[in-house]
């Protein structure tokens, strides 16, 4: 992941908890695949598994690999299944004005970039998408910038140095920790 240009799917609800992203009754699988089918299940479907026409994922006006969500996205349960469901559905970026800690870590561990912007930028982005669903954003990960194309809005965002290196190079936490096995052994003995 280096640069991404995409339209966005707006979900203007605050405090979206991971029970909404993937309800607990769908956590029974023992693999990481297939959770995308049940992403936002109880908002996305009406009783009888009928797609809810009012829910944004069922509205063909909106598409893209970027989810734009209200403040405090991913609060609640630590279930990594929430990140798996988003990735499985096809999202690789989530933009919000605030993320819950555990979700943020889980997202980064699954190649999803959580981009935190100000409340004002988030409001502007929702407004632009509302006015024109074809609005695109451009994310430059190495330079940590986000542009709303067709506007003069270009902002920088922060991502921690370690995870940025992992995302850019496809590195893995366990390989990194295993490179410090001797230090762990020494710690245990000390």
């Amino acid at each position: 992941m280096k640069e991404i240009k995409s339209t966005c799917i707006p979900l203007q609800i605050a405090n979206i908890d991971t029970d909404q992203v993937i309800p607990a009754r769908f956590l029974k699988a023992t693999t990481r695949e297939g959770f995308g089918d049940n992403l936002f299940r109880d908002w996305r479907y009406l009783p009888g598994d009928v797609p809810n026409p009012d829910f944004v994922l069922n509205n063909s006006t909106y598409s893209g690999s970027v989810l734009v969500a209200g403040k405090n996205f991913g609060c609640g349960s630590s279930r990594e299944h929430a990140a798996w469901a988003l990735a499985d559905y096809g999202f690789n970026i989530v933009i919000s004005s605030f993320f819950a800690d555990i979700f943020k870590g889980n997202a980064l561990n699954n190649g999803i970039l959580p981009i935190q912007v100000s409340d004002e930028i988030l409001a502007t982005l929702f407004e632009k998408i509302d006015q024109n669903p074809a609005t695109e954003i451009f994310v430059d990960l190495p330079n940590e910038t986000l542009e709303i194309l067709g506007t003069d809005i270009k902002i920088s965002f922060k991502i921690n140095a370690y995870k940025k290196e992992c995302l850019l190079n496809g590195y893995d936490d366990i390989d990194y920790i295993l490179s410090m096995t001797d230090k762990i052994k020494a710690f245990v003995l000390s």
């Binding site: 630590s78 299944h81 990140a83 555990i102 870590g105 889980n106 936490d173 366990i174």
Partner: peptide, 8 residues
Amino acid sequence: IGTSQVEQ
């Protein structure tokens, strides 16, 4: 923690 960290 998430499952990736459980693995760690």
